[in-house]
Design a protein around this nucleic acid. Structure first.
Lengths: 199, 199, 199, 199
DNA sequence: GATGAATGAGATTTCATTCAT
DNA sequence: TATGAATGAAATCTCATTCAT
């Protein structure tokens, strides 16, 4: 694709910033935010310690910037153009597949975003963004309710929180080594969630 | 019950240890394990800092001990004698209510156990215990499957992880201020989960 | 003297705090507040670095505490019981001698207090205390004015600031190696200051 | 004068150097030498950070260069052509007015030069220059002594240090907010100093 | 010459842990 | 056994200086 070709030609305008965020994601996903020292991130990013403080006011600001970038990346991933055709059931499956796809293709991002507790240091912008991305997940539920496909005796927010929680916990249990997830398992869970919502 | 009466008369054989664990839960639930300094725990427990190290080898051991105590408390809560009579649906509802009850009656315990990421420092014992308690949640699913009440085309572990994840995420979203949960919402989610599992 | 004997028997209730303040005065007097790192103070005080932060919230608080202790010490030095007899001129000379005595007996204290610019980091308490000690120097001027000994066509504050400034600058010039001060020089300056004020 | 007219037409041969020194004086006067980071000076001077190091070997060299420039400026200010006529008293008053004028017209310069402690980093050239400028203040005292106007029973250096110290301390107390100085106060102090010296 | 992003040594500060009492 | 003052290793962060452009 032309756009891809162009992208590869475009040079990152802030390669160090990018390297820092990548390194931070890498370490945070593995050890948690508090398990990683700033110089460790600098090392992995092949950057001086002080450089991190040129791009981010302090460690907390770095965490929030990373959180926001990854939440946005996640939001964009979910919004990827996809076949708008198909039955509601097929659309639901596509949605689910999108969630799986993100967790599989961006495992560090997923671990950092969803498997850790950031409440103690997230700033308002981060929390607003998280809310906003969650709202994007609520919308399809609401649409399906209006189409009479999803039950209407339950709030769309609750449907979303339930499905999303189910999904995240599957990933969490796999990550902790408590279960192994085959493709069938994931599809089974998907179908169970459909049953949960369908009228 | 006599045993209960006795228990209340029994003096705690290790009151300091208990005070430390209580204080630790209190602070950990609010600020996360890494947000709390050991002397802070000692202060809140009305105990010398060094005393903590008489009962626990180090901070990590304290975290693991607390995790295990609370997981056990949670397991026992779930196992509380209840009406074994009733339809499968009623039993499921009782189960769900048990989960809600724990989260409501022991909010600190719930936050600490379920809303934080402990993977980086949990030891084998803690992880084995978590597994074990999760298994207790799997069993009812398996039973209901064997009775033909739950669908059998999906593994009991997956059912459990899904329902449990749905529940935890509701609590998480409430804690983060992203949704407000009425009793109806919680019951709606319960019924949705039932639909998910029932054959 | 009995009081002295008692003092030597009294043990300092906070020997570490005292050692830290002593070490800090020592280094600050020589290199200025910004020329000294906290671990240097700790080393000289034979104390762990962290110990300093048990007694003082941060470096700035240490500077302010030291400033206040030394200002007080200076104030007390000036207030030392002395011969209340004697002519105004003799009293003035005693006053001057007191100032000389402090600068000579507590050279580090004098350098730290008077030859450095603390404005950028002094807190309100420190500034209030400095004001207060300066007021103690204003009072004798005012008294002598009321007795008709000092001229009254000039504000007591101005007299004080002038005499005190003259004295401090003599010490400063000596410290910088720009002049050498004999006893005669110091007495000459004293007499000059007397002429300045006397009616 | 022709030379002055030319000077105003001449473009500064080193405008960046001048901008750096101006910016440094500005910041140093306010925050002290150690309170100002080199890049801050560069920003205010509208100059790249590295540029500072083209004109000055390091920060200490910059401080010394600035100190010397300002001391010279002060020396020149004092030497400004003035009415050589007039009684000794009038000459003394003119001298005093010169000091006041410098402090009022070049407050940053005055604060930097006189209200801060530079001893720890002044180099030999700076200290020699300071001595030299002070000598210029000593000379008039010596002259007046030789004319029999000033008392001769006190060294000219002592007279000078005393008068100068009195003056500086008035300014310092005003700067610290400890006193407010009216024109009358300043003139009163001047007259007091005259009395100090006059035979 | 001029720049300013990048650097890393070094400063400040925290906190898990120890140990004398 | 219990204490909590003391510790210093390690974390966070700053800033004088360099160097590729």
């Amino acid at each position: 694709m032309a756009s891809t070709a162009q992208q590869t030609q475009q040079t990152d305008p802030q390669p160090k910033r990018t390297a820092i965020l990548e390194a931070a994601l890498d370490r945070f996903a593995e050890l948690g935010v508090n398990g990683v020292a700033v110089p460790d991130i600098a090392n992995r990013a092949q950057v001086g310690t002080g450089t991190i403080y040129r791009y981010f006011q302090n460690k907390e600001a770095l965490v929030n910037a990373l959180f926001q970038e990854e939440k946005l990346r996640f939001g964009e991933y979910l919004a990827q153009t996809r076949d708008r055709q198909g039955s509601p059931r097929e659309l639901f499956n596509q949605h689910w597949q999108q969630m799986v796809g993100f967790a599989r293709e961006h495992p560090k991002s997923f671990r950092f975003l969803e498997l850790q507790d950031h409440l103690p240091y997230l700033d308002n912008r981060s929390r607003a963004l998280e809310r906003q991305v969650l709202q994007r997940l609520v919308k399809p539920s609401r649409n399906l309710q209006q189409q009479g496909v999803f039950r209407t005796d339950i709030r769309a927010e609750i449907i979303m929180a339930t499905v999303w929680g189910a999904f995240v916990n599957l990933m969490k249990a796999e990550r902790a080594g408590y279960i192994e997830l085959s493709d069938k398992d994931i599809n089974d869970a998907r179908d169970a969630c459909w049953r949960m919502c369908a009228s």
